[in-house]
């Protein structure tokens, strides 16, 4: 993957143990924690934990990807912005996600590798339901940033997942 065009300015402060990417604080976490967190939320009783997980991811990426776009006015077309989102996803370590078939109305996104699939397999083994809830929220959040729409403007459903035996993960995206 070519990174020359899109800049994710990562800085580390050794005196404070803080990492920022394009000015926003990030941290590095392993599959034991990331999958443990998802599992705890998936098993919640009394509230819909997975919806909360997806919506929160959407809110966070709606916010931070909008900030990123403000810092990069050279990204003018939706195609460029979506490619930047794909490369941010890769740079963070979440895998390879193709957003090029999406537009303001939605469409289909495809991932040929997925952190959550690899991580879940390593931690808990195979499962028979999709696991890429993070990616669903990510896609909704970045689309809302790209097309300047409010939270809740897109519904994203993972229709195929590597963890259930598909050759790739597929996400159906609809504007609401």
């Amino acid at each position: 993957m070519e990174f020359s065009k899109y800049v994710f300015d990562k800085r580390f402060s050794p005196e404070k143990n803080l990492i920022s990417v394009s000015g926003a604080l990030v941290s590095l976490h392993c599959h034991h924690f990331n999958c443990g967190l998802l599992k705890a939320i998936e098993e919640l009783k009394g509230i819909d934990g997975l919806t909360l997980f997806v919506k929160t991811t959407e809110e966070v990426y709606r916010h931070f990807f909008s900030d990123y776009l403000k810092q990069h006015p050279e990204l003018t077309t939706p195609a460029d912005k979506l490619q930047a989102a794909s490369e941010m996803y890769y740079a963070f370590g979440f895998g390879k996600l193709n957003l090029s078939n999406l537009n303001e109305q939605g469409g289909t996104a495809k991932a040929t590798s997925s952190y959550y699939v690899t991580a879940w397999l390593a931690k808990y083994g195979r499962r028979h339901t999709p696991v890429c809830y993070f990616t669903c929220g990510f896609i909704a959040g970045v689309l809302e940033s790209v097309f300047t729409k409010p939270i809740g403007s897109y519904k994203v459903k993972e229709t195929k997942c590597l963890i259930t035996g598909s050759d790739f993960c597929e996400f159906e995206v609809k504007a609401i």
Partner: peptide, 18 residues
Amino acid sequence: IYAAYNYNEFYYRIVSKT
């Protein structure tokens, strides 16, 4: 281990809301 970066705000919001 398998690692990934994510926003600190992501972890805070998910956990605090839960």
